[in-house]
Design a protein around this nucleic acid. Sequence first.
DNA 1: CTCCGAAGATACACTCATTATGATTTCGGA
DNA 2: TCCGAAATCATAATGAGTGTATCTTCGGAG
Lengths: 191, 191
Amino acid sequence: MERTEPGRRERKKAATRQALSSAARELFLERGFDNVTVAEIADAADTAVSTLFAHFPGGKEALILGHGDEREAALAAAVRDRAEGTSILEALRDFLATRGPFDPNRDPQARRVADLVVATPALRAYARTLWTGCEDALTKVIAEESGQDDFSVRLLARYVLEVPDLAGVEADPAAALDAAFVFLRRGWPGF
Amino acid sequence: MERTEPGRRERKKAATRQALSSAARELFLERGFDNVTVAEIADAADTAVSTLFAHFPGGKEALILGHGDEREAALAAAVRDRAEGTSILEALRDFLATRGPFDPNRDPQARRVADLVVATPALRAYARTLWTGCEDALTKVIAEESGQDDFSVRLLARYVLEVPDLAGVEADPAAALDAAFVFLRRGWPGF
DNA sequence: CTCCGAAGATACACTCATTATGATTTCGGA
DNA sequence: TCCGAAATCATAATGAGTGTATCTTCGGAG
């Protein structure tokens, strides 16, 4: 059978995962990313270090930022399932506008985390790799949706995925996001 | 006085630096980047590990790729000292065309190194950070030379510096480089 | 209900990069 | 000749991440 509710095992697994990532979040926010060791996080979550790495093979930074699975799926879906008459670039802009530093209405917790990410080089770099990790997938979707498949498509994908990192540190992230897409639309008319 | 020839001290320093980086190059080419430890490199160069890190604070990857100092200076100079009547983007394209995978005439040694970099994720990532490490400097120069200074300039700088990483892995790197600049010129006419 | 196998969790030991420390050598210039 | 600075060195410590073998616990087959 397929659709039984989670069961105790999966619930416990999710619980430890949750414990780990929220312990990490608290410690990072309190003392800064670099001043917290994985051992301390594991301790705070009352688990073994091995368990931490079993849940987050991506390492320390994955504890707050997750791995890019949902991100990638959501991104591809945003393009593929865009509203009739919406261009690819519009769909991408709208999707990014709901994310991280660009979302105007987000809880203060998320705001503090976003600030920490922007202020911590290691985290900012990791966030960027999460985005650019979607590059292959995005390239594929754009190729399918546009009927075009060459270097220019890969270039566009990379450039789109660089926008969050760049715009995120600007004084007005949302405005910067829009500004970036003006240039992308000019470079890739028809997308 | 200022211009005495290097002197024994500086010569020795340069020699150990040279010994380290060529030992690293040989070992990496022979056994792959990930299968060589810094201890082995230091041994091969007959120095202490501490000395290795004194010369290359950037870590293992800096041993083949260097740090970005000359790179940054050369890049800024290429824009600032460009020929009369040459646009900023043309100057940048021409500069990049002489670099790494894009240079048509380079010795086989350099070719093997470039291949290794492209094939090794850690090295490719480091090479990319070296380029994007020039972002602030390039942004500044473009702002000065164009008289424009806002987010769009930073965006352009980032996009230019992403080109090497992207075009470098294409079947025809030089052609990809040119293709990328077609889009950049379209997005930033007047640069 | 019982029992077996797999999944999760754990402890432990290990490798490796990188940093810190303090001693020791070795030039270069006064 | 002698002093100070720079380069090198050995050594130890920290901290991330991996591998392994063991133990516990749940879920499903019988």
